[in-house]
Design a protein around this nucleic acid. Structure first.
Lengths: 232, 232
DNA sequence: TCAAAAGTGTTAAGCTTACACCCATGG
DNA sequence: CCATGGGTGTAAGCTTAACACTTTTGA
């Protein structure tokens, strides 16, 4: 294979912000490192790019290793490349975020990697520039979730309106009016009433909805404008 | 310096989509390549990352080489990394877009690189995955320009309302109502009437405005909602 | 005086917001 | 029966969208 002459070759890594929702809070899956460098500290899920891998494939590999899940929602955030961001050796890291239904992950895989679901609000400081990565990923999640109906990726197949509302309140860290939220969501036609009720509840049982997937596909790139605009 | 063992090191490049506006159309600065690979074809402005450079610094270096301009608006789009995207040797490319006032560029520098301003609508096919990069950059420009007042980066210091409107019509490739546009823009308080009139015009002379820079800074991250939402 | 572009106001419709009461359930 | 959370309607204000005529200028 021909090669470019005189050029500088370096490591390319991938780091993933894995978002989950437990019904109350947004959580991220973080690693308590038992390996160098920075053993003992917290970091994102990451790894190096292999020779035969596309970026998205590599990100999916890392995500599968950690959660046991395929076909999850993944989006690139951006590349982080400060010269000294990794003190061991220069590495450019491509950052992705993933949205998963927290109930779906494989607890064995998570345990094996010494990973933990940590509430965003209690996130410890992370190594290198990983705090910046989380900040940027959250910003992008907020943008996207305002414009497109991607919150559903964080919920189980069947979910209630109050759950959905709590999710959006958690994403934006802001309270929403129950009546307005309900009206707006139902008016999108994205929700299908399953006829079932949430049996977990100890008080009045909420209606379980599922996502209208055709409409979801169609409308994904329609402007959604779900959130009060002032919140962004 | 310690190094990571057993890891694959590769080239990291940068490619820039340089947007300009000539008063009628959005243009991009493209290179008619007189060097390998793919000599004779069109490509984006690009180059390799150096050992001591941050990504943004490297992008600014490329932009300065080509346009003679410092301190221009630059934003990262994302990393492109398909295994075979560069047939010579695997290269991950970090893509940036830049917005410049087309009148400000240094014609000598542009000429020396065999670069040309090409209207988006007449853009030829580009090498490698550069067409995808342009598509993605344009998408990001549209998003951002809907939410934030960054169109001004493409205009001269003093500009008229009709120019501004043509700019937004070009960004979205859609017509806008003159009266509604004018009302909305003036109501933002972002425009300051210079008291001068556009002397170029052969018919009625339009008022020249300049940007209220303090307000621009303040409001950059305010949600702008300039465009009819249906256009996204 | 004519053609071409700039400037300007009003109305109707739709959307957003704010707000309060009743219902179902399990303890 | 009471505490908790689910479900629902309405009115006011604001924003958006649609629409046409007058003014300025230079050729």
């Amino acid at each position: 294979m021909t090669r470019y002459a005189h050029s500088y070759r370096l490591l390319v890594a991938l780091d993933c912000i894995i978002f989950g929702f437990d019904g109350e809070e947004i959580k991220v899956l973080l690693i308590k490192r038992n390996f160098a460098p920075e053993a003992g500290k917290w970091s994102l899920v990451g790894g190096f790019l292999n020779e035969d891998e596309d970026l998205e494939i590599a990100a999916s590999r890392l995500l599968f290793d950690l959660t046991g899940l395929h076909d999850i929602y993944v989006e690139q955030v951006e590349a982080f490349g400060r010269v000294n961001r990794d003190p061991v050796e220069r590495t450019v890291s491509i950052v992705f975020f993933a949205l998963i239904n927290i109930a779906d992950h494989d607890p064995e895989a998570v345990k094996a990697h010494n990973a933990h679901w940590i509430s965003l609000k209690q996130k410890p400081s992370l190594i290198f520039d990983h705090d910046d990565m989380v900040r940027k990923a959250l910003e992008q999640l907020r943008y996207k979730a305002t414009l497109h109906p991607l919150g559903f990726e964080l919920l189980p197949e069947k979910f209630t309106l109050p759950q959905l509302q709590k999710l959006y309140e958690a994403i934006y860290d802001a309270p929403l009016d129950r009546r307005n939220f309900s009206r707006k969501l139902l008016s999108t036609g994205l929700l299908i009433d399953t006829g079932e009720k949430n049996t977990n509840s100890t008080t009045k049982k909420a209606t379980l909805y599922r996502l209208n997937k055709e409409k979801y596909q169609e409308q994904f790139y329609a402007f959604w404008n779900l959130m009060p605009v002032a919140i962004l």
